[in-house]
Amino acid sequence: MKVTLTVNGTEYARDVEPRLLLIHLLRDELGLTGSHWGCDTSNCGACVVWLDDTPVKSCTVLAVMADGHRVLTVEGLANGASLDPVQQGFAHCHGLQCGFCTPGMMLTARWLLNNNPHPSSYQVREAISGQVCRCTGYENIVKAVLWAAEYEAGG
C-alpha cells in the first residue's frame, strides 16, 4: 500500500504492508533510527514521535495511518546546527544516561513546553509518565525540562 508522509519536513513515499508499524517505517524504511522501541504493549514510550502536532507511541500506529500526515522525530528537533533548548537541557542537566529513552522523552518535553511554557515539576512528571527511563530515576529529566523552560523564558 502506498503511503506518503512528511517526516521532519521531508516528504517520503513508500509502498508498505498495511501491518507495518510506524516505528518500523521510520527506522527500517527511512533509516531514522533515533526513535527506539522497548516493548510490545505500548507501555514504554521509547518510540514516541509527533504525529502532526501531538506525541504518539509510534509502535501503536500503523504506517498507513500516518499517510498524509506530518511526523517529527528526534532527528528533526534541532534547527540545523543549533540544538533545541530541550536537547541542550538534557545534556546540561545529565538528563540521560544510556540515551535510549531520550528521543521520546525530549519529544514529549517539547510538546509540553509548547503547550505549557512554565510547567511545574509535577506537570513534567505527569507528562512523561507514560514513558519509562531505566537509568535516570527521572530526576534529571525533570530538571532538564525545567531548565529548557527557563532558558526559553530568557532566564
Binding site: 527506522r27 527500517d28 533515533g34 528537533l77
Partner: peptide
C-alpha cells in the same frame, strides 16, 4: 562536567544494535 557522549544521543545519533543494518 557534562558528558561527552551526550552530543550524539540528544541528536538521536547513538548506534544501538538494532540500528545496525
Amino acid at each position: 562536567i557534562p558528558r561527552k557522549e551526550d552530543a550524539r544521543f540528544v541528536r538521536g545519533q547513538g548506534t544501538f544494535v538494532d540500528d545496525i543494518s
